[in-house]
Amino acid sequence: MPEIEYILGHLNYWLFTVLMMTGLYIVVAKGNLIKKIVGLNLFQSAVFMFYISLGKITGGTAPIFPLDMRIDPATVYTNPLPHVLILTGIVVGIATTSLGLALIVRIREEYNTIEEDEILGIEKELVAQENRTLGDAMGGRA
């Protein structure tokens, strides 16, 4: 039955999509900045696993040769190239995460909150205040 084979062959990709969308939902819907970073991490992990799953070969094994380097030509090895790229990706991911968390610490210092809508409210208030000051300096309403 080709139908079942097609569904089983693509099921992994669809499940990875569900995970990705969970991460995206957290980024879009949640106002807390730390939660947003967690959502980004979730999305990123799902993309990594999706990418690795593209390199998998059925019946293959981990791409490590025997120690005596006598390679049996009958052995199937999984594609190592996605693994290499994702290793780089994981490390860059942790670098961006740490930068984001440091920014959150600074934001908390300035605004005393890490909720997005409260920060926007404070920003609005500051701009209104500045406009009033400038208007007064020019004599009358700006």
Partner: peptide, 21 residues
Amino acid sequence: LDAVDVAFTEAAVGAGISTVL
């Protein structure tokens, strides 16, 4: 998925360093 090196890094970085951060 046969990606043992990546699994190793993910367990160390994802569950270790990023939790500490």
